[in-house]
Design a protein around this nucleic acid. Structure first.
Lengths: 193, 193
DNA sequence: GTCTATACACAGATAGAC
DNA sequence: GTCTATCTGTGTATAGAC
């Protein structure tokens, strides 16, 4: 694997576990196997630039994953419960590590790192757009689809936090159940009968 | 105001804005007006102890606030939309600062600060318990109430992140709309007719 | 209980040999 | 493109005068 890719991947993992501020260049060097000088060679902007790349990469990966997971079932309602159940299983099996560095980092730096906030903004916008199209194809109106996707992403990110804090799958399973019910109700009114 | 209270209050504000790792003792001293030595005098455990206290205090404050806001309307569904609308207005008027230091800090330190994670766990448990009782009184079954409260708290925390990242009220308003609809559906099946 | 000075480790970043 | 040594600032924490 190329050096810059190894650095980005290591950064993603560190952001997941401990966030942006607590992650040091030295630690990144150890985790990636690349010496400090190499990091600055590949990323002129230093730590911030590496994090920027890591957010973009994670954002794109989750965009693919989300669409894949949601489309896995014929029934959209089952798809929602499936996504949350999968997340619950994964998060426990990783020892309650965060699944999404984007949410963690944005919560931490949105007020103090304009560049990273803007990168996260673009990532989230891409999720909302793709999700909205997905649920429009399922039969929801544009506004309903968009609202539901915001609730879905917010519910996922929030439930990640609760699940990690409580070391329990319950927050994810509960949020999935409620959002699945919500989608069922929206679909029922959208295509009555 | 007492010195230890000033320190705790300043820490809460700093945690909100920039999280735990990025907040230094020196910065806390400046923000609180108390010199470094006084911080260590009042909080033997240093930075971690101050953050611990700040989380407990914020948790208790939000417990009161949440119950107050939810009970403000006779109609529980209107209460949900009211909470999210209020949050949207407040978050914008503060320049997109985080409203809840608990979520931010937990996302950042859950894997690396066991003491703070445990403190946050207790705070969240207190929210879930109080919220569950509230919605049981509204007519939901115990399991439905508990699931809905998890979805509610997760939706709030997640929407805070999205709203700050996008500098938009839309995530909060959208999540509120969806969760209000979800509660309406749950109430309709709980007390038919 | 308040405040200053300081110890010691480590941060991010850079220069320059290889 | 890789790696080492190092610069400068800041981090947490403490000792001890007041």
């Amino acid at each position: 694997m190329r050096t810059d890719q190894r650095i980005t991947t290591a950064m993603t993992e560190l952001l997941r576990r401990q966030g942006y501020a607590a992650t040091g260049i030295q630690q990144l060097a150890e985790a990636s196997g690349a010496p400090v000088g190499s990091i600055y060679h590949h990323f002129k902007g230093g730590k911030r630039a590496v994090a920027h790349r890591a957010l973009e990469e994670s954002g794109a990966a989750y965009l693919e994953l989300l669409v894949l997971l949601l489309g896995r079932y014929d029934d959209p309602v089952a798809g929602i419960e499936g996504v949350f159940a999968d997340a619950a299983e994964t998060i426990e099996s990783t020892g309650w590590a965060n699944l999404c560095p984007v949410g963690t980092v944005l919560g931490e730096v949105a007020d103090v790192e304009p560049e990273l906030r803007a990168a996260g903004d673009r990532v989230i916008a891409s999720w909302i757009e793709a999700g909205t199209e997905h649920y429009e194809r399922c039969g929801l109106s544009g506004p309903d689809a968009r609202s539901f996707v915001y609730a879905l992403v917010a519910g996922l990110e929030g439930a990640f936090i609760l699940a990690r804090a409580q070391r329990s799958r319950e927050p994810l399973l509960a949020a999935g159940r409620v959002l699945a019910g919500s989608l069922a109700a929206l679909l029922a009114t959208a295509r009555p009968g």
